[in-house]
Structures are given as C-alpha cells and as structure tokens.
C-alpha cells in the first residue's frame, strides 16, 4: 500500500499537468510562453535542419546526375525563347505603368514587396501536418499571416512566429485553401491541399474551358494571399462528385519535399475585410 499512493499521485499529477497544458494551449492562453520556448528550439533546429537538408540534397543530386545534362540543354533552349518573351513583356509593363499613372490606379505590385530570405530548418513532427519551420522570426520583421514564396511560386503563409523562427502552413496541407484565377480564362476557383500533399483545383464552373497546362495564380480574394502569385499548372480536368463544378489536379513548380530557401513577404498588407463582416451581422 505504501508504494501505491506515491505512484497514484504521480500518475494523477502527470495527467493533470498534461491536460491543463493542452487545454490552455487550445484556448491560446499560453501562446506567449510557447513562442518564447520555441526561440531556443529554433536555434538548435537551425543547425540540424541545415545538416539534414545537405544530406537530402546531396542524395538527390547524386540520383539526378544522369538527367542533369539533358535537362540543362532543354533549359538553355527554353531560356532563349523566354528572353525574347521577357523583352516583349517589359514593353507591355512599361505601357501598363504609364496608363496606371494616368488613371491614378494604385496597386501594390511585386516590385514593392520586401522579402526576407529564410532557411527551412525543419518540418512538423507529425508528417500529416504539412508545415515547415524557418529561421526567421519577429526580429527579422516576420509576422503571422505573411505570405511565403519561392521563385517557383507560392509556398504558404506564416502561422506561428517567435523571435528567431516561424512556422509556415504549406498550401499542400489539407486545411489550406487558396483563392485562385486561371491565367488564360480569368475564371476563379479554389486550390486545396490533400492528405497526400498534392494540390487540387476545385469549384470551377462547368462551362469554363480548362486547358491542361493553364497557369493558376492567386486571385487576391479574401486577402489571404496577394494576387498574381504562381500556384501551379492544371492538368486533366474532371467533373466533381456532385457534377456541379469542375476540378483538376494542380502541379506546383515548387518542390515541397526539397524546400531549402524561401522568401517571406514582410510588407504585404491585406485589406481589412472584417469591418464588412461586422456590418452584415
């Protein structure tokens, strides 16, 4: 009997402490403490994150060595074509800027964005939760809801931030939804993540001609992300289960399995839409 009591007390204590921390965490009461505790963790994580990234990229490079030469030739040909297209687009851009100035059209463009480059130092400890950890935090101007991108397109948005690091919810996560627009037809839809980490375009009207290879860009609606960020490329559209909409897989140009360096847009200010919601209520 003398042994049972301290054991029972220890169990009750451990359950109570864990349950209390869990309840406070769900309620958000201990968020400042959690953020403070994550700061030293992100420093150590930074070191090991770099180490695992280098192992991963070395293995990948070795595996891809054979195809690299062919790919290089293809890319050089594509580059030559794209350079002429860029020159043409620069002309159009300068026309656009002049016309926008004439009509006093104010729009925050990508040229105005301030980027903070960040290393990916880790992933969520639960593989089903598609989040990554970066080595930039409030000290570097990163805030919750900041969009995260690479040169290849949209990556996700910041969900938690400490002084030295932050957590980014990837667009491939099951709970992610990105309001998008098809570049060619300008029709709208929603790109959602899936359990397997793929992207699917949903809620596109049935009369919209979706072409395989069409680019999908953020629409800027709901102000979750800035407009015109590349999300990916659609392929083989099908009817949704209820036959009311079309849906299609979206292939991102971002390799989410091998993200090493990303850019956080720190000065994008979404329009505050909450005031309209309050007025409706």
């Amino acid at each position: 009997m003398s042994n049972r009591s301290p054991r029972g007390t220890a169990i009750v204590m451990a359950v109570f402490i864990s349950a209390a921390i869990m309840a406070l965490s769900i309620l958000g009461t201990i968020r400042p403490v959690e953020n403070t505790a994550r700061t030293p963790l992100s420093i150590v994580q930074n070191f090991f994150g770099g180490f695992s990234q280098s192992i991963d990229s070395t293995a990948a490079e070795l595996a891809e060595l054979r195809t690299l030469r062919e790919r290089n030739n293809e890319l050089e040909n594509s580059l030559a074509l794209l350079q002429s297209e860029v020159a043409e687009l620069r002309e159009i851009r300068s026309d656009y800027d002049r016309l926008a100035e004439l009509v006093n059209y104010v729009n925050q463009s990508s040229a105005d964005w301030r980027y903070v480059a960040a290393d990916v130092i880790g992933e969520d400890s639960m593989p089903t939760l598609r989040t990554i950890h970066l080595n930039r935090g409030t000290r570097d101007g990163v805030a919750v809801n900041d969009p995260v991108v690479t040169a290849q397109g949209l990556v996700g948005k910041v969900t938690k931030v400490s002084a030295t690091g932050c957590e980014v919810l990837l667009i491939t996560d099951q709970t992610s939804g990105v309001n998008v627009r098809l570049q060619t037809t300008r029709d709208k839809g929603l790109v959602e993540g899936t359990l397997s980490g793929d992207l699917v375009l949903r809620f596109v009207n049935t009369d919209v001609p979706i072409q395989s290879g069409d680019l999908v860009l953020t629409s800027g609606e709901t102000q979750t992300f800035p407009p015109n960020l590349i999300v990916g490329q659609v392929s083989s559209p099908t009817l949704s289960e209820d036959k009311l909409f079309q849906e299609a897989p979206v292939t991102s140009f971002v390799d989410f399995e091998r993200l090493e360096i990303v850019l956080v847009i720190t000065n994008w200010e979404p329009v505050d839409l909450e005031v309209f919601e309050e007025q409706v209520q």
């Binding site: 169990i11 359950v15 864990s18 921390i21 869990m22 969520d124 400890s125 989040t131 957590e167």
Partner: peptide, 15 residues
Amino acid sequence: LLSLVPTGTSALIFV
C-alpha cells in the same frame, strides 16, 4: 512545441 498539435496533447497520451 515543434508542431501544429496543441501543446500537451502528446504529453497526455505519452503519460
């Protein structure tokens, strides 16, 4: 602390 999971969830089930 290194996950989206509410802090304490793993602690409770581990216990």
